[in-house]
Nucleic acid binder design. Structure first.
Length: 704
DNA sequence: GAGCACTGC
């Protein structure tokens, strides 16, 4: 600890913080910023007037850093130093330094918008630009303006982005704190490989044969490529003459791997053995593997992207940014000098890669965030002109308003409704919180709580993809799991949880049925949390227990499906005449299909129901609706009427300050804020940047 | 007949 680079800057940091409300700290890996900044300010009296909060984008980081700081200060965790993450608050009235996820701080800010318990707020890892961090950045900008001058904000950022953050905070100072990384030699390919699997294979084997000991970390885009490369590596390593080089052991590493497989990379390798770790992005920030000396960087990443005009997500392989490339390279220099092999030329790095990754706020549906901001009731802030470091497109904001209107969270003028206020209390996507409120009214809250909790954990429930034939066998014959009684996936999720409940939450039952234990336990935790919040919101005592009940009846399924229809009024589709394709009703009508993994069944004529609601639209090989529930025409009719009436301009605050028609705005110049004119331009720039990068990528793909 | 990168309240 004593030789952490940041400590040499202690005086400088304190002096700068003393004289400025906001300071940007550029701290490279190993600088000790996460553990030391809070302690430095603590030593200089900043905890006398309040608590120092340090936000982290990830739960594990919040916990482990807090634990470390408690150790260094020799105090009990949860007393002077504590942490708060979802489901777990380890702080007390004694706590002076508090680590928390950015999501938790946003929740706190709902009940205490001034955040006046805190004398200092440190947004750590802000360069990762998580959705929550971006919203916090905007809120902080406002807070430093309206809170007294002894409130301090520190933001840690990456080298390439520091000036931008500083400009955002009216030119606040930027401090550079060097890291403690060893030098990493960067080696570029002469050209882009035709296949980066083959190219990675060749480079990895070359390293293994020629270079001194040290583990190799290879960045790939997804599970498929990882599995292919792992088996090729195994084959190649076996074929090397025995004794010609050291032993090798090869690990895949990605998110859908069960936890016990993930932690294998943390146990030390056998002696005289080189490890190959073939990983997704998970090894870029979330997991740090010790012993890595060589990094192979394909230059690509798989990214989820939202299209606000179609309401559809897609998962695309895209080029990484310079920040990401540098982060990947840094993974080679943690224990001693290393090497990073970039499978692309220097010119590509220099000219093609964006400086920073497109922030999440420009890649995701904003319904939840817009509702959150509306519920804060900031008197001085118009949501559509909210000051973001990178503004989302006006199209994306309009999409959010449209969705919120259809589920009654805002009225036709864009003002938040009582329903919307209640919704914002719930830590859920808007369509799910709307479903809960409706279910509470119609007497199926217990069932809705279960479905909503299952949906929030859905991706972690099923284990990694099994072999195709094995899967088929399981699905068709062997699976003892309920089938949704024909109504679709939501009902199936309900039935699965009710089954587990009737087995007294026996973990063996999960294993027998191929359900991830961790996922199911998470569902239980979410459900419990949601119950508590609903109890608090509702004046009456609620019937919410899942235990000790018989499984739900058909009448209850019907009530639940109706509640789901109200909650998913922004996600309804109508079946086409004479075939089983559907047309979406909320967005530009598009032809979509029920995802093949759905359990929704057809009638005796082989036809699917006329109307469905879906949880998500995802475009893979084709556009699909994932998690589908059959609904009735009479429930959809009022939604259709509402869609027809919809006036987006009115939703965005009336024609006077609509950003869609700048001419109209000029005539009402008093209400025109300089921001309005700029916002669409800024986002268009970003969009055209994405578009250009995409075209370049596609062109290259076509070439090979 | 398809497949899911990674987080978080």
């Amino acid at each position: 600890m004593a030789n952490l680079p940041i400590l040499q800057f202690e005086e400088k940091i304190v002096e700068t913080v003393e004289n400025n409300p906001v300071v940007v700290i550029i701290g490279e890996t190993g600088s000790g910023k996460s553990t030391q900044l809070s302690q430095i300010l603590h030593r200089h009296g900043y905890t006398k007037s309040g608590v120092i909060a340090v936000t982290q984008p990830r739960r594990v980081a919040a916990v482990s850093v807090a634990r470390r700081v408690a150790q260094e200060l020799d105090v009990n965790l949860g007393e002077d130093v504590g942490y708060a993450i979802r489901f777990e608050d380890r702080t007390s009235s004694k706590t002076r330094i508090k680590y928390l996820t950015d999501g938790v701080l946003l929740r706190e800010s709902l009940s205490n918008p001034m955040l006046d318990d805190y004398s200092v707020i440190i947004l750590d890892e802000a360069h990762e630009r998580s959705l929550n961090t971006d919203i916090l950045l905007g809120l902080m900008k406002r807070l430093v303006r309206i809170r007294s001058s002894n409130f301090k904000v520190l933001i840690t950022s990456a080298t390439l982005d520091g000036d931008k953050v500083s400009r955002f905070f009216s030119g606040c100072p930027v401090l550079n704190v060097p890291g403690k990384l060893y030098p990493v030699e960067i080696l570029y390919s002469k050209e882009r490989p035709g296949s980066y699997i083959e190219s990675s294979l060749k480079v990895a084997i070359d390293i293994h044969v020629r270079e001194p000991e040290g583990d190799i970390l290879i960045f790939m885009t997804g599970q498929d490529d990882i599995e292919k490369l792992v088996s090729k590596l195994e084959e190649k390593v076996r074929s090397l003459a025995e004794g010609s080089c050291m032993d090798a052991i090869i690990y895949p590493l990605h998110g859908s791997l069960p936890p016990e497989m993930q932690v294998r990379v943390f146990s030390p390798p056998p002696p005289n053995c080189r490890r190959f770790i073939v990983a997704t992005n998970i090894a870029e920030t979330s997991l740090t593997v010790d012993g890595v000396v060589y990094v192979i960087d394909s230059g690509y990443v798989k990214q989820r992207q939202y299209n606000p005009s179609s309401g559809m997500y897609s998962l695309d392989v895209t080029q990484i940014s310079k920040v990401q490339a540098n982060q990947r390279a840094g993974r080679a220099g943690r224990t001693r000098p290393g090497k990073c092999y970039r499978l692309y030329p220097l010119a590509v790095y220099r000219d093609d890669l964006l400086d920073a990754t497109i922030p999440e706020i420009q890649r995701t549906s904003l319904a939840g965030s817009v509702l959150y901001l509306k519920s804060l009731d900031l008197p001085d802030i118009d949501i559509l002109k909210f000051d973001f470091l990178d503004a989302p497109s006006s199209e994306s904001l309009e999409d959010a308003l449209k969705q919120l209107y259809l589920i009654d969270a805002i009225d036709e003028n864009g003002a938040i409704t009582n329903i919307g206020r209640t919704m914002s209390e719930l830590p859920l996507e808007p369509s799910l919180s709307r479903t809960l409120i409706e279910a509470n009214e119609s007497g199926c809250l217990s069932q809705a709580l279960t479905v909503v909790a299952m949906l929030s954990a859905e991706t972690t429930l099923l284990p990694g993809r099994s072999k195709p034939n094995e899967k088929k066998r399981k699905r068709d014959e062997e699976s003892n799991l309920p089938d949704g009684s024909g109504f679709g996936d939501h009902i199936q999720l309900l039935q699965i949880f009710e089954c587990w409940d009737s087995k007294n939450y026996d973990i063996r039952w999960c294993k027998e049925n191929d359900l991830q234990v961790r996922g199911m336990v998470f569902v239980r935790d979410v459900r419990r949390q949601l119950c508590q919040i609903m109890q608090k919101i509702s004046k009456d005592r609620l019937e919410v227990g899942a235990r000790g009940r018989k499984s739900s009846s058909r009448e209850e399924y019907r009530k639940l499906r109706k509640a789901l229809c109200v909650g998913n009024a922004n996600q309804v589709a109508e079946r086409m005449l004479r075939h089983n394709g559907f047309r979406t009703l909320t967005f530009k009508p598009q032809l979509v299909q029920v995802h093949p993994a759905s359990v929704l069944s057809t009638d005796q004529d082989g036809m699917l129901p006329n109307y469905v609601v879906y949880h998500e639209l995802i475009s893979t090989t084709r556009p699909f609706m994932r998690n589908v529930c059959s609904v009735e025409m009479s429930w959809v009719a009022p939604i259709k009427r509402k869609i027809e009436k919809l006036n987006v301009r009115k939703l965005s605050g009336g024609p006077d300050n609509s950003f869609k028609e700048p001419e109209e705005k000029k005539s009402t110049e008093l209400s025109t804020n300089t921001n309005t004119a700029e916002t669409p331009t800024v986002s268009e720039n970003v969009e055209s940047r994405i578009e250009a990068a995409r075209e370049r990528f596609l062109a290259r793909k076509g070439q090979k």
